[in-house]
Structure formats: structure tokens, C-alpha cells
């Protein structure tokens, strides 16, 4: 039997294309245009060629921000993914407590980023914040506005508090999809708890965990609001992550050319890493994992 091919359905994606063009493609094209020009405002532009790219490539400021960003993403992934899995493994699988846990786990995800930042900014303050005050009362010298390690610990703990739930919920969904037959077979074989996790739960969760890693990596790599509200990029530049530095450059200093070159390189790194993740994910799917 011959299949009827009708490509008119492609027109159905037209609204999305128009929306993406307006919200992403045209602004991105404008950034490319800015990156090769200089401006002093008033919508007057002067050709600068590759000058901004060359300047940014030799700028310690960008490389330092990139290093901090990679470190931040690596730390939060190393904490959130295992922690999320542990939480999911310990959640009740059914009944009212399961629903209760799901609601509680979703709560941090519902809070807007700037509110999370404000909560932690106050929470960590030594004079009025519960955390800062308690630590001071215990004799621990903690001050996220002056101490680099304290600032880093604060923004990492904040991110873990905000986003571990996402990993846990995804891992929980992965665990719920495992048929009982697998566990019954494991019981017949007298498999240990570790072996059940290693050979049944982990492989079955690998798909959703990959999505969790991808989502958390991309989000943490583009993070702006929460650390900005808590530390403002300080003390010094200690928590100035890529997007904080970019905003400082583009809006604070109005260096549109260098900021455009910076953001294009930032975009390329994100694009490359997303592609690697996407390729790995789709290949895992094809292998049936």
C-alpha cells in the first residue's frame, strides 16, 4: 500500500518558527552585528572587525569567570545528582505519604529565582538571619559578604536547596516506571540492595538522569539571579559567574561590542555542550537504555 505523503503539515510549525525568530533568532543576529562594531550610544555604530573577539580572548576576566562557572556547575552537579537519587530512593513509592513528599519536594521549584536569592541573602546574614546568627552563636566565623569560601558555600547550598528536588522528582519518575517483575526476579536471585540499585534501578533511571544532568548543567551554567541577589558577584569577583560578568559589561559599562563578543563565545560553549549531551542521550535511547 502506498503511503500518502502530505508535507502541508509543516505549515503547522510556522507559528513556532515566527515566535522563535522574534524571541531568539533576530536578537541573536543583532548580537552578532554588535560584536563587530563599536557604539557610543545614539544608535551610531562604527566598524571594529574582529577586535572585540580578540580582546575578549585575551581577557583574563572572561577566562576567570569561565573557570568559576565550570567549577560551580561541576560542584552542584556532583552534589545534586547523587543527593536527588538518594532522596528518590527513600521516598515512599505509593500512598498518601508519597503524594505528601511529592508536594514538599516541588515547593522549592515553585519559588521565583530572585525570591530564593533574597531568602538566602537574609537567611545567611549574621545580624538578622537565622543561619548566620546560629553559626555565629556556635562560634563559627561565617560571613558571606567578606569571606570567599563562605560566599561559595552559601551559593552552592542555595542552589542545592533550590534544585535537588528537580533531580529527585525526575529520578522518582524513573524509579516508578520499573515494573515489579524486575524486583521479584532480584528477590528470587537474593540480590543485595546494592546490586538491585546497580543493575536494575540505575540502568532504568539512566535516561531521566541524563535529562536531569542536562537540565541542571544548562541552568547552572546560565545562572544569574540567585548568586547576584546573594553576593552581587563578590566578595571582589569571587562569585562573578559568566552571566553576572556579562551583564556588568553590557549594562553596567555599556560596552556593547565586547559584551556581544563575550556572549557569542558563551553561547558557542553552551551550544557545544548541549549538543554533546543531546547526542549522548539520543544514542543511549537508541541502545534501549
Amino acid at each position: 500500500m502506498n503511503k500518502t505523503l502530505n508535507n502541508k503539515a509543516w505549515f503547522l510549525v510556522l507559528p513556532v518558527l515566527v515566535l522563535v525568530a522574534f524571541s531568539a533568532v533576530i536578537p541573536l543576529m543583532t548580537v552578532v552585528n554588535y560584536s563587530v562594531q563599536d557604539t557610543f550610544g545614539n544608535n551610531q555604530f562604527f566598524w571594529a572587525g574582529l577586535e572585540w573577539f580578540q580582546e575578549m580572548l585575551h581577557e583574563d576576566r572572561m577566562w576567570n569567570a569561565l573557570q568559576r562557572q565550570l567549577l560551580f556547575s561541576a560542584i552542584i552537579l556532583a552534589i545534586e545528582v547523587p543527593l536527588g537519587v538518594i532522596v528518590a530512593l527513600n521516598m515512599p513509592k505509593s500512598g498518601i505519604w508519597s503524594s505528601f513528599c511529592l508536594v514538599v519536594m516541588s515547593l522549592p521549584l515553585l519559588i521565583p529565582w530572585n525570591v530564593v536569592g533574597t531568602i538566602w541573602q537574609i537567611f545567611g546574614r549574621v545580624d538578622i538571619g537565622l543561619l548566620g546568627h546560629t553559626l555565629a552563636a556556635m562560634g563559627i566565623d561565617y560571613n558571606y559578604t567578606q569571606n570567599v569560601v563562605d560566599a561559595w558555600v552559601t551559593i552552592i547550598v542555595m542552589d542545592v536547596w533550590h534544585w535537588t528536588s528537580l533531580v529527585a522528582l525526575l529520578a522518582f519518575a524513573g524509579l516508578k516506571s520499573i515494573p515489579d517483575a524486575y524486583y521479584q526476579a532480584a528477590r528470587i536471585d537474593q540480590a543485595s540492595r546494592w546490586k538491585v540499585f546497580r543493575y536494575i534501578e540505575l540502568p532504568k533511571m539512566s535516561g531521566v538522569l541524563m535529562i536531569a544532568v542536562l537540565l541542571r548543567f544548562m541552568d547552572s551554567f546560565m545562572i544569574y539571579t540567585e548568586p547576584f541577589v546573594v553576593t552581587g558577584g563578590g566578595p571582589g569577583n569571587a562569585t562573578t559567574l559568566l552571566s553576572i560578568d556579562l551583564v556588568k559589561m553590557a549594562l553596567g559599562q555599556f560596552d556593547l561590542g565586547p559584551a556581544a563578543a563575550f556572549s557569542l563565545m558563551y553561547f558557542l560553549v553552551i551550544l557545544a555542550i548541549s549538543w554533546v549531551f543531546y547526542t549522548v542521550m539520543t544514542n543511549l535511547d537508541k541502545k534501549g537504555m
Binding site: 543583532t30 552585528n33 562594531q37 544608535n43
Partner: peptide, 15 residues
């Protein structure tokens, strides 16, 4: 389109 600050090299690049 003036707000997009087009130049010939970038236009050719996108074309």
C-alpha cells in the same frame, strides 16, 4: 532594520 545595526559582512555571513 536600522536598530539591528546591520553590516555587509554580517549580512553575508547570515546569507
Amino acid at each position: 532594520m536600522a536598530w539591528m545595526a546591520w553590516t555587509w559582512p554580517t549580512a553575508i555571513f547570515f546569507m
